[in-house]
Design a binder for these strands. Structure first.
Lengths: 144, 144
DNA sequence: AATGCAATTGATAATCGTTTGCATAAACCC
DNA sequence: GGGTTTATGCAAACGATTATCAATTGCATT
């Protein structure tokens, strides 16, 4: 699974989208590649500033949008807070949020997709995209 | 299906939550009960002003929060726009958004819930809540 | 390596939806 | 009706994101 795309891969995506490989973008890509989980713009900015103090938040946002549009990353908006990002992977997956810890667990199940397609079809629609977030709580090992 | 809760029902919920039945709240409740679809705060405010010019947007927001917390309404955040509200109904349902028109279609399918429970269980979680939004496009009747 | 020009940047103001602080004005209980 | 307590309106504050704009930079070309 761990299809680790390299920084060079992402640079190629940028080039393909007609975008320039600037220093801020390289820094942000580096951060994205190293990042675990689903950082938000502020977190990315914070790490970027550590690498180059002159980077601005606006550039982070602009870069995230560019990367999103060129398909390199995905944007999620769990609940109400700020948007969070993750590297785009080939396989679609959804998210389960641990409501106690905030932890984000990823999962995928083709039956879900099939069922959704069926439901949409019955309503006369074709699904273009979907968003499923489960909010759950770790099941007690109940020993009490 | 149309389990139409009455204004009195909602007032009882407010009282139960230790809240006062004020004129602004009565107006907002009336609007909510009459509303079709999923109005946002600005729309509710607009209609409220028509009934009492002195109502403020802040009160709309505060009332929506109070109603949400007392379980009378549900708050949804489709995509990026403003939060939208609907009366809480007994039966859970999800939403399909027509990406061309913005129309919101409601649907429910017990198989979805079952599948989600199963997936969560496999990950060691118990689902407390979930949010599924399908984004689709009306299927062409293809005559062209 | 210098040049030209469009793309990109940083800084900051602006925007949007939403929340909050505060003084005043209702609700509610007796 | 009076006294508390809570809710209101207004306006300012807020957080996330986008727009503006002059200054800088990437990069294809010389």
């Amino acid at each position: 699974m761990g299809e680790t795309a390299t920084k060079r891969d992402y640079e190629a995506m940028l080039r393909a989208a007609g975008l320039r490989i600037t220093k801020p973008r390289q820094i942000i890509l580096t951060i994205l590649l190293q990042a675990e989980g689903h950082p938000d713009a502020a977190q990315i900015f914070e790490r970027a500033v550590a690498m180059d103090a002159r980077i601005s938040l606006a550039t982070v946002y602009r870069t995230m949008k560019a990367l999103e549009e060129s398909g390199a990353i995905e944007r999620h908006a769990f609940g109400d807070g700020p948007a969070r990002f993750e590297q785009a992977r080939s396989a679609h997956h959804d998210h389960l949020i641990d409501i106690d810890s905030g932890e984000v667990v990823e999962f995928a199940d083709p039956r879900l997709e099939a069922l959704q397609d069926e439901i949409a079809a019955r309503l006369g629609f074709e699904i273009v995209q979907h968003r499923l977030v489960l909010y759950g709580r770790r099941r007690a090992r109940d020993d009490g």
